[in-house]
Write a protein that binds this DNA or RNA. Structure first.
Length: 293
DNA sequence: CCGCGGGCCTGAGAGC
DNA sequence: TGCTCTCAGGCCCGCG
């Protein structure tokens, strides 16, 4: 599911119920997700205060007052759901509507406030790992992550520099989290379309011979900013699994210009093209051959 | 070092 | 109805 806009949407939903709040109890309903839980996973969280909830690329990071950081990744199908206590009820009193399938609620955080935060992940590609803050710089999961696409250091010059000399396709380069961290299949397709750049173009063409940013790189960075900000504003894209933490759908899928629109007409004004789909590095690419060059 | 393909999982939807 | 097949917002690993 989740690319940067979905993860950021989740972060914003969890922040008010986690930040400054104490975790009273943690339920792990299986041995692990993608990886087994650490032996002391529960013990290092129970009774601890969450001092902040941040995000790095597609990772959520809960800073604990204990000095630990809880890293959480949603994989393909992970979602969080917040249930707030009603009136004076105590933690553990809640129930979801019968109609809701909570089969894959693998981890449940019971906050001291009474809020209940459930992590649901049918495919179990997600993971949680506790890392001491002092060891974060050496953490393999985060090492090598490129710049945040909405951060100050990410600009056309930097993108051009990291794409210079790359023989791979522009699409593959943008999906590479070492180049820029947080984009996934949807937003790469959308950003390439909006900048009229072909996903097949060689990545190195974003840099001039001297290594400077071309106009292509500038356009692309602008499109990345635009599409990510719009998607965050819309609460992300809900195709299958993504939900906001209150259970509501995101609605950016209604604003897709190419993703999931195979066979439909191109939305570029005056373009008579049709959206095509083909496979690149094992993933579907959606694009308009007529206006993406 | 780099790029690619396979594998990890479950569920939804299409086609028969 | 039910089976089989394909595909899905990600990422790690091993191969050439």
């Amino acid at each position: 599911m989740p690319e940067l806009p979905e993860v950021e949407t989740v972060r914003r939903g969890l922040q008010p119920v986690m930040e400054g709040q104490r975790i009273a109890r943690v339920e792990t309903r299986r041995d692990g997700l993608r990886f087994p839980f650490q032996k002391d996973f529960v013990a290092r969280l129970e009774g601890r205060m969450v001092s902040g909830l941040g995000r790095r690329a597609k990772y959520l990071m809960a800073d604990m007052e204990s000095g630990d950081v809880l890293l959480m990744h949603l994989g393909m199908s992970g979602s969080f759901r917040v249930t707030l206590p009603e009136g004076e009820s105590t933690p553990g009193d809640f129930h979801y509507p019968r109609s809701e399938n909570r089969t894959h609620d693998h981890v449940v955080f019971h906050m001291a406030s009474g809020a209940m935060i459930s992590f649901n992940d049918p495919r179990r590609f997600g993971y949680m790992k506790i890392v001491p803050r002092l060891e974060m710089d050496a953490e393999p999961l985060l090492r090598g992550l490129g710049p945040e696409p909405l951060g100050n250091e990410f600009d056309a010059a930097m993108l051009a520099q990291s794409c210079a000399g790359k023989k791979t396709s522009l699409k593959a380069a943008l999906l590479d989290q070492r180049v820029v961290a947080g984009l996934g299949n949807i937003y790469v397709c959308e950003a390439l379309f909006r900048s009229h750049l072909s996903p097949k173009r060689e990545a190195s063409t974003l840099a001039s011979r001297s290594g400077a940013a071309t106009d292509h790189a500038k356009r692309l960075v602008g499109s990345i900013h635009t599409v990510l900000n719009a998607a965050i504003k819309a609460g992300g894209s809900s195709l299958r699994d993504h939900r906001q933490t209150d259970g509501e759908l995101g609605y950016f899928q209604h604003s897709f210009l190419v993703y999931d629109r195979e066979g439909e007409s191109c939305k570029t004004p005056k373009c008579r093209g049709t959206v095509k789909r083909f496979t690149q590095n094992g993933r579907s690419t959606f694009w308009c051959q007529t206006c993406q060059k």
